[in-house]
Design a protein around this nucleic acid. Structure first.
Lengths: 341, 341
DNA sequence: TTGAAAGCGCTAACAA
DNA sequence: TTGTTAGCGCTTTCAA
């Protein structure tokens, strides 16, 4: 070790200065630190890992764009994770997997080779093979996303046994609905997905709750369709045609909201304003994707970087010490206001 | 080493079987391999790295969503990279950095600690500090994206000295334009970005080339605006109002195309079809983002997974052997046809 | 408070 | 073709 020679101490003292500073005399420590800085010394990770058994690596699966929480959401979360991890002295390692079994195979592979200190799981679900496998072996991990209960309401027993971080979707749609209420709307519709998806049901519940708070009825003002612009447009047309006097729409996704915007006429989307009956309906989307910004759509924004930060916190807090009880963190989303509402 | 004991050979023979199979007798090799498989043995990466100096890690920066090639494009590329890397026996390590200098600092940090075998650079540019730094030290890397020349046309001397992989944007817009020509359009406009951005100029050039091939004039049919739905809509209205009889538009991005779609009336975007003069203009976007799929926009699709695969190929080909001359690969994009054109 | 010795699991070089 | 030896750079004992 070069540093030791230059600083005139033993290699051991250098190691101590870096890992157990309290053990080294103040003066020596400062001197060693100065030399470390000057020489740009970095402890070799492989050697350290070999000795300590810790890799300072956090592994996470990256989904193919298209399904799951991929696209912008995954991107922002990954960025936040990488940044938070770096601050805590960790790096992020990527892997792919087609399904639960494939992911478990990758766990085995990774654990035997790169030995990541922890995993971050996304898209946990009822009867998740991965959580069971990791729990069984006492391996550290956090889930981003609550393990939603079965469609029939049975909640996953594993869900309570591991830590997770999630964004409170219901709070988001409730905030959106309250924003519309504050703007004077009274007949507010909701366009979401068919019942059974935890995330979707949660978002619908927030809308219903906010209406209920004000004693307003929601019956007949909700539509459940597959995600997509076309289905969003169809649902919006349907809701606006009921004669119930719907003046505003909360949507479970930006795709649905984009459709609703289009169905409402060219008033949004850069068309000529002032056309009869065009673009008068207020619309709020969910996820604040680039599309939302592009078309001026007000949307519920998930605090992804913060969620990633909490994941790292939960993980690193566990890693050094003895196993701690599972923690569950629910983060509040915010509303990004644009001209659509 | 457990495997050695079980297989009844020396630990060295196991290592040889795994790393230099040709050196081990066929029968021994098969036997060892079988035991390795049965025991699920994985060579410890840290130990191997310590001995060989190779980490089997490829590092890449992940950008914050919003600027650069982030969002869907980055996501798909990262996924492809992770998958190709895994196939070649490598893993992908993530890092963040605010600018060139910050990224170089991260190089130093990483090289001293995790020792990645190679870097994949994105968004290389004229006078890139990173390429110069890596080149100077003979560190292996590939760039995803050509190092575009200066606005004044001076090309970066470093650009020729390192390998890069890119997608031929001009070929993409040319294909889009030819598709429109084949559909009978003759007055085809282009909406792109202000001159000076290599990527933007390239995409405009493809449109111009396809028109020139057919002896069709492009003058006055091109608009240069900042990226965004609103500016795309404004540019589209402007082009349609010239009286030149424009019937189709090729756009440098899906955002611009989305605006053009909106400016053209509610015919697209799920609005009522059949409205007078609505949605008759054909529009083609670029990047095939989720929005494109959502609104039925025909768009130029970059072969991102393939690009990532080529990056890994170029890298791994270099890693084992002696340094090779820089290679440059330009990939052809494809057109994803939807109802907008 | 500092130094010396041992060993983490692997593979390159060499010896058998 | 297989086995033995050594050492990669670090940190955890333990002794000074």
């Amino acid at each position: 070790m070069d540093v030791a020679r230059v600083a005139g101490v033993s290699r051991q003292t250098v190691s101590n200065t870096l890992n157990s500073p309290e053990v080294v005399r103040e003066e020596t420590r400062r001197h060693v630190l100065e030399v470390v800085e000057r020489l740009g010394y970095r402890a070799n990770q492989a050697a350290r890992q070999m000795r300590t058994g810790r890799s300072r690596l956090i592994a996470i699966r990256i989904d193919p764009g298209g399904d799951g929480i991929s696209g912008t959401v995954m991107d922002a979360f990954l960025h936040g994770l990488t940044e938070s991890a770096a601050r805590a002295g960790y790096r992020v390692l990527l892997y792919t997997a087609a399904d639960d079994r494939g992911e478990i195979a990758t766990f085995e592979d990774l654990l035997g080779s790169y030995e990541p200190d922890a995993f971050v799981l996304t898209a946990t679900h009822h009867g998740d093979l991965r959580t069971a496998w990791l729990l069984e072996r006492g391996l550290p991990f956090v889930a981003f996303g609550r393990p939603w209960s079965d469609p029939d309401g049975t909640s996953d027993p594993d869900g309570a046994r591991h830590s997770w971080v999630d964004v409170d979707g219901a709070a988001g749609t409730a905030a959106a609905t309250r924003h519309l209420l504050a703007a004077g709307h009274r007949r507010i519709g909701f366009i979401g997905w068919p019942a059974g998806s935890g995330v979707g049901d949660d978002r619908r519940a927030g809308w219903a709750r906010a209406l209920a708070e004000r004693g307003l009825p929601g019956e007949g003002l909700s539509r459940a369709v597959e995600d997509g612009v076309d289905s969003g447009a169809a649902a919006a047309r349907d809701l606006l045609a009921t004669g119930a006097g719907v003046t505003a729409l909360v949507c479970a996704s930006d795709s649905l909201a984009l459709g609703a915007l289009g169905a409402d006429g060219p008033g949004h989307l850069g068309g000529d304003p002032g056309v009869a009956g065009a673009g008068r309906t207020a619309v709020i989307g969910f996820d604040d994707t680039p599309v939302a910004r592009a078309v001026g759509l007000t949307s519920v924004r998930q605090p992804l970087a913060e969620a990633a930060g909490v994941c790292v916190d939960l993980l690193t807090r566990t890693l050094g010490q003895a196993p701690r009880p599972a923690e569950h963190v629910l983060l509040e989303p915010t509303l990004t206001l644009r001209r659509s509402a």
